[in-house]
Nucleic acid binder design. Sequence first.
DNA 1: TTAGAATATTCGAAATTTCGAATGCTCTGT
DNA 2: ACAGAGCATTCGAAATTTCGAATATTCTAA
Lengths: 114, 114
Amino acid sequence: MPDSLRRFKAEIFQALAHPTRIAILELLGAGEASTGELGEKLGIEQANISQHLAVLRSKQLVVNRKAGNQVFYSVRDPILNDVLALMRRYFQNHLQEAYEMLGEMAHAPTESEK
Amino acid sequence: MPDSLRRFKAEIFQALAHPTRIAILELLGAGEASTGELGEKLGIEQANISQHLAVLRSKQLVVNRKAGNQVFYSVRDPILNDVLALMRRYFQNHLQEAYEMLGEMAHAPTESEK
DNA sequence: TTAGAATATTCGAAATTTCGAATGCTCTGT
DNA sequence: ACAGAGCATTCGAAATTTCGAATATTCTAA
């Protein structure tokens, strides 16, 4: 496999590598939603949601549809939902360690605290 | 779903979000390999491979087995292979855009490049 | 046309990631 | 014990990512 393709793949994963963007995609898995709805359900500032949506758009993970004042987003390729579903199984299998890892992180000193 | 879990998920995706680490995991999908073997097959410096393996280890995506002088790595949970396989299908579906996004001439990859 | 709602973009500072270079560690053979 | 092989870690600089604040854009209603 050419390295250029691996770079492309890595960029897709990078787009998935943020809690807010994962949350957005999981919400969109249930059907389309507007920027405002996403922001409200997630309790995140409008500008920030828009920025994350811009990332997902730039990697073509989502598509949008304008309706009057609003913009509705949806997942472009259902395979993405399958990937997220598989990942949910993965997390179920390793929930124990997940919490341990998160617990350690919570106790690890941050750079500014050192 | 709690935000802590989403953060955990995001970290897994982050671990996948590098061309070299994707290449490593794809190689390991065919069976275990030593650090040296991985570095040689990928044409990447020893220290760098070790750094990427450290990332994969820290997120528990791989496990290792010491054998004398060497350390052999393998994928811990086969679900990960399924995720990568699903992603391969995704990339096949969108190869055209992949190449466009990369700003490369669209051409079919040769067998040897796969 | 003007106001306001909904969404997007730009900017800058802080945090994180990446890689090579240098160094450290742990085995094995002699 | 020593040398070398194989692997891991640390350090520092460059690149990238992230978020809030400010500003733009686009659409609708009056």
